[in-house]
């Protein structure tokens, strides 16, 4: 099993390296010259050339790539072109905000979705399941901006309970942070729960048609144990993958939600950086998003592997 994990970690490292190349190339082919954009339309040729020299843009692409990569490995993400501050500092604040949003959403949404999915699977075909399925399918097909906007209309405009904008100031207390987070979290919980619940229902409902489930019922095992033990233990692998993809989405794919609530997260930072041709920041964000996906899938794979006795036959054999 250890060798499997080692192998997967190595593969992931190689994959991340490939991703870094792609991110770098992607940024190179973005239209527009960084120095030109940074200095504005009326900059003189000499100024632009000077800035290009200062930023090291005159060097061959592979040298630029290698020095960028070497920097990242040492924790130096470079310097923002527009704000002249270090990218690492800009990232750390945004990363924390995004992390907080993703964490709170995950803690609420994942257990909620799993329970909902299990209940739907148990009642598969009954009125409760059909009703819930329609609602969940509807919600997972509804774009986030609609859910977000409706939430703002209801809670901020009509009821005036919460602020419409989720501005997080660095020194804010818990209650203020909670108020700021409430609407974005609510929106994301709805979206993510719908997705995971639907997948959970499909995976578990399929397992419940298996002969070993019929056997468990015929042994007199109560329904909650059949579902909670016999079915669930077989669903760990696929469920881990579904959850991992949704968490990765929470880190990288929430541009719309961040924009609606003016939430200072990573996605927002990246959008601004792209508009400003602030390549070091764009590259850093892109790399973090990709790495999140790759690492979450790695985690899900390892978890699925650990839970599958067929893949860990060697260890089991030693025990016997």
């Amino acid at each position: 099993m250890l060798s499997f994990i080692l192998k997967r970690v190595l593969q992931t490292a190689v994959l991340l390296l490939a991703v870094s190349v792609l991110v770098f190339i992607g940024c190179q082919i973005l239209p527009g010259d960084v120095a030109q954009v940074a200095l504005g339309q009326f900059a003189t040729e000499d100024n632009v050339r000077a800035l290009r020299l200062e930023l090291g843009l005159d060097r061959p692409a592979y040298v630029q790539y290698l020095s960028w990569l070497a920097g990242i490995l040492q924790g130096d993400w470079g310097q923002s072109i527009t704000t002249k501050t270090s990218v690492a500092t800009m990232l750390s604040e945004r990363l924390w905000n995004t992390g907080l949003l993703a964490l709170v959403t995950t803690i609420i949404a994942v257990p909620l979705a799993l329970i909902l999915g299990l209940l739907m699977a148990v009642g598969a075909g009954r009125t409760w399941d059909r009703g819930a399925s329609i609602v969940v399918l509807g919600l997972s097909a509804t774009p986030e901006f609609l859910i977000g906007t409706l939430a703002v209309l209801l809670f901020a405009v009509q009821l005036r309970w919460l602020p419409a904008v989720a501005y997080l100031s660095p020194g804010a207390g818990i209650s203020q942070t909670a108020r700021a987070l409430f609407l974005p979290v609510l929106t994301l919980v709805i979206v993510v729960t719908a997705q995971i619940a639907r997948m959970t229902r499909a995976i578990i409902a399929n397992l419940l048609t298996q002969p070993f489930v019929e056997m468990a019922f015929l042994k007199g095992v109560p329904t909650r144990r059949v579902v909670g033990v016999h079915a669930l233990i077989n669903a760990v692998g696929p469920l881990a993958n579904v959850v991992a993809l949704n968490i990765a989405y929470l880190v990288s794919g929430v541009v719309v939600v961040e924009t609606i609530f003016a939430y200072p997260g990573l996605a927002g930072l990246m959008i601004n950086a792209v508009q400003a041709r602030d390549l070091p920041v764009v590259q850093a964000c892109a790399l973090i998003f990709c790495a999140t996906y790759v690492l979450m899938i790695l985690l899900a794979d390892i978890l699925a592997h650990v839970y599958d006795p067929r893949s860990t036959a060697q260890t089991a054999e030693v025990k016997v």
Binding site: L218, G220, V229, I233
Partner: peptide
């Protein structure tokens, strides 16, 4: 009632043991 009888008063032996055992449990 069914649950309390199944497995204790009446037990079932299925055709395919390979399919009737949960692959993830000892």
């Amino acid at each position: 009632t069914l649950r309390s009888l199944r497995g204790r008063t009446i037990a079932y032996i299925a055709q395919s043991a390979a399919a009737a055992f949960n692959p993830r449990l000892r």
